Simulated scan of single mutants.
Amino acid sequence: MELESSEWLSYPGSVDHSHIPIDLFGSKKHAGVPRGVLVFADASSNIVFKVNNAHTHSSPKKLLLDSSANPLFSIHRFPNGCWKCYKGDSNEEKELIFSVQRTLKKLSRVELEVFFKGENDGECDLKVRGSPFKRSCNIYKHNELVAQSSLMYKLHQIFVSRDKFRLTIFPETFDHALIVALFVIFLNGRK
């Protein structure tokens, strides 16, 4: 029996019980999707997640959608460099899943700290470190690697395209949608 997306979304950090790393391939160029829409596909090029831009009167917003275009997360950016991620297409405090604060911003490096709602009272739950320009980051829970991303490239290619990248999510860690939402924030964390 396959679960609906709303059934497996129990947060913070639902565990995926698969035993092998999962690769998702991100690109803004995917067949059947308007150009500029960020898509995450599996190894068979089936769309798993899409990211749509939306704006509210208070802040820029991104929606993380599943393959059927159902909203999983609403990601809001605030002027102070903070991000908040809510369940579904909400911005109500009771639907808050996690918040993200940028702790380092350099030209080539960004570090983010992730705080789940109601957990550890102010202690960082996850850290994201890397270079948004290179689409390269590592996501850690304490010292354990949860996920990492890197650019896709071919041997003998002089110019490395920044259009396609791979996001590897390691087994028995966090829900895939949550990791994708963190990666979307990371890509936009340089602003």
Score class of each variant (00 low, 15 high):
Gln101Thr: 13
Leu9Lys: 09
Asp125Val: 05
Val180Gln: 03
Gly189Tyr: 00
Gly122Ile: 10
Glu2Cys: 05
Tyr86His: 12
Asp66Gln: 02
Asp42Tyr: 07
Val37His: 05
Asn91Ala: 06
Met152Asn: 07
Ser6Trp: 15
Asp66His: 04
Val180Thr: 11
Ile169Gln: 08
His156Cys: 11
Val128Ile: 15
Gln157Leu: 14
Ser5Arg: 05
Gly32Pro: 04
Trp8Ile: 12
Phe73His: 06
Phe165Lys: 02
Ile169Arg: 04
Lys134Gly: 03
Asp121His: 11
Ser136Trp: 04
His17Cys: 12
Glu111Ser: 14
Ser44Tyr: 08
Gly88Asn: 12
Cys82Ile: 09
Ser161Tyr: 06
Ser6Met: 05
Ile22Met: 09
Gly118Ala: 07
Val15Cys: 09
Ala181Met: 03
Asp163Ile: 02
Lys87Gly: 00
Ser90His: 04
Ala43Glu: 14
Lys61Asp: 01
Lys106Cys: 04
Val33Tyr: 06
Gly13Gln: 09
Tyr86Asp: 01
Lys134Cys: 09
Asn91Tyr: 09
Asn46Tyr: 07
Thr168Arg: 15
Pro132Phe: 03
Glu172His: 13
Ile169Thr: 06
Ser131Tyr: 04
His17Ser: 11
Lys50Asn: 06
Phe183Glu: 00
Gly26Arg: 06
Val180Cys: 08
Ser45Pro: 00
Arg162Asp: 11
Ser161Gly: 13
His55Cys: 08
Lys117His: 07
Pro21Glu: 13
Lys154Arg: 13
Leu182Lys: 01
Gly130Tyr: 01
Arg77Pro: 00
Pro79Ser: 12
Ser5Glu: 07
Ser99Trp: 03
Leu64Asp: 01
Thr173Lys: 14
Thr103Met: 06
Asn52Lys: 15
Leu9Asp: 09
Ile20Pro: 00
Leu126Cys: 05
Leu65Asn: 04
Lys94Met: 10
Leu167Trp: 02
Lys87Asn: 04
Gly189Pro: 00
Phe159Val: 14
Pro34Gly: 08
